[in-house]
Design a binder for these strands. Structure first.
Lengths: 341, 341
DNA sequence: AAGCATCGTCGATGCGTATCGACGGACACT
DNA sequence: AGTGTCCGTCGATACGCATCGACGATGCTT
């Protein structure tokens, strides 16, 4: 691994260094014969271009900066699927992924752009009022947000349509003759941080419940180990009517289900439950619950499409500034059917 | 954000560009007066050095490559704490973290080194026979493994001491008069992939059980949703004697506990249980279980210490080629005390 | 007081690639 | 045959920084 350069390749192929470069970039026509000779030489040396030199001369790094927050109170459905999808999408475009943690705040952003560490940035865990958003907007590299802040500052945002999801949940319960709706909320940490989707979901749910004239209450989230208490709190609301429960925080669904089971409360008979989660979780659960899809892979895939479009606006169709992935409700066993009357 | 260069800084500070460089690297003495002027100029311009140029000229990228595997069957205790610790450690040394997924196999490694994308690599999810290990050993950059392959090929390895953990578990059960030991194994995916710690744990446990003359069985892992079956399988083994259960796969502990609870089998009275997990999980569980500590943060912190030592051997003390973090057993409620006799 | 090491700074060079202008040759057309 | 057009290739240069050798200015020694 003696670290070959394009000059070595050129010498072996019997061409000039610039020709090797043009073979790689394809920015000038190269005869098929020469091209083959160069490619052979590259293969023979297992040549890899020096990314630093490339960044210096070509002013593009082929690196995507990924800003995530690790601390608790985070996402409703796990960070890993996002990261994984982003990584594989980057790879598909021959780009690398540079990881930056959010606890650096906007300093991390400035560093990414200032040091020319990446060509574009994708930022997750956006708060409604996020100090990083204006900084990101002023950066010299494009930034895509996963999440929608109150002021998007001209940045492109991609996320699940939490407003639509909330409406959908309320409509489903209203349409099946429920009297009251309870939302099992997000963890305290997420509430306090003002994560954007928390507000988006709750506000939309309240609005829609009002439209339907249904009383809606938000109760404390189900923390791990607190299932029993949450279930009690929930059941205390039941005044004999038809109670519908909405659980937007994926992690809370399973504990809640098992707590209900323990109390011999059967979702779909005694009570109704709609969860926000990936479809596979909902299917494999016992019982399988009616869910509204939350597919992190879809969201991050679209975010990456937007990002690469920003890097090369010629390619593909124009992307919307706010790109919301439509949720999908799948009926399973946990919502009581409308009473026949 | 007009992208200033060190030449701009030099002009403003009234010095030459090389002086600016020496202020940054500290590789030559600079008078305090000049140093201040340069620092002021840098602050004024919010100058950030161009990482590509720096990599090209200085042949060091200040980037750490992190190779992880996302797919299932993975780690017993979550990927995120590892990544988080590695990221923050890198940051503390003013290094970035470049993420590479393991499904690229050794190609990802070659790319990292060949393109001079990073100064060192840290690789997780090592298999006992891992095709990437010999490749890694031949690389021009140092590589630290989290995990111990059968042939470490001269690489530095850091991991929990799974052999010691297994011995510790068996000893604890033997010392409290148990007749039989059952290990609830790892997920099939982990077994098939030959993840290094699986073999290390099981072999060591078998050996120690033999020393103690105790029958030891390994049963299928507890997959999510399969708790009941696993519990049955487990209880079927109970012939009236004192049965000790060891659960090395952290994710399996909670489901198993709840399955036992459902069958009115009380750990600590009817049966004994020792889990491998982080201490915080063990404490917060209901009931709190006797555990052997598995602290990903310790492991990755030590791995990063080794990595930075390899990058600068002058600093700090020599690091062992195989650095095993000693496990710690904390007695809680789930192991039956030795019978008084 | 002259010689000598040390300190602090500068100018010049090289790192490996992308890109621009130039140029010789093949070809099509007057 | 002469002129113009592409095509394919080359040489030279710039990118921003680290580093090396050089050199004037000190301070110290004898």
């Amino acid at each position: 691994m003696a670290a070959f350069t394009s000059k070595d390749v050129a010498r072996i192929a019997g061409v000039s260094q610039s020709t090797v470069s043009y073979v790689m970039t394809g920015k000038r026509p190269i005869s098929e014969r020469t091209r083959q000779r160069v490619l052979d030489a590259m293969a023979q040396l297992t040549y890899e271009p020096h990314s630093g030199a490339r960044a210096l001369a070509g002013r593009r790094t082929r690196v995507v900066g990924l800003v995530v927050r690790f601390g608790a109170g985070g996402d409703a459905f796990g960070l890993l699927p996002f990261i994984e999808t982003i990584a594989s999408s980057a790879r598909a475009h021959d780009h690398e992924v540079l990881l930056v943690t959010a606890d650096e705040g906007s300093a991390g952003l400035r560093r990414l752009a200032g040091r020319a560490l990446c060509d574009a940035i994708i930022m997750m865990d956006i708060e409604e009022q996020d100090e990083r958003v204006p900084v990101a907007a002023a950066l010299s590299v494009p930034v895509v947000l996963i999440g929608v802040p109150a002021d998007q500052a001209g940045l492109h945002c991609v996320d699940l349509d939490f407003e639509a999801a909330a409406r959908m949940a309320v409509e489903e319960l209203a349409g099946t003759g429920h009297d009251e709706i309870v939302i099992v909320g997000y963890p305290a940490a997420a509430m306090e941080r003002g994560l954007n989707y928390v507000g988006r979901f709750l506000r939309s749910a309240r609005r829609q419940a009002q439209v339907r004239g249904l009383p809606l209450t938000v109760i404390e989230p189900v923390d791990h180990g607190q299932e029993a208490a949450a279930a009690d709190q929930l059941l205390a609301r039941r005044t004999g009517g038809r109670l519908g429960v909405v659980v937007p925080h994926s992690d809370a669904i399973m504990p809640l289900l098992s707590a209900l089971r323990k109390k011999d409360v059967v979702p779909g008979c005694d009570i109704s439950l709609i969860g926000l989660s990936s479809d596979s979780w909902a299917e494999q659960s016992d019982p399988p619950y009616t869910n509204i899809s939350v597919e992190p892979r879809d969201v991050s895939r679209r975010a990456m499409e937007t990002l690469f479009w920003l890097l090369d606006p010629g390619s593909g169709v124009e992307r919307p500034a706010i790109d919301l992935v439509a949720p999908r409700l799948t009926r399973r066993t946990t919502v009581m059917p409308a009473p026949a009357n």
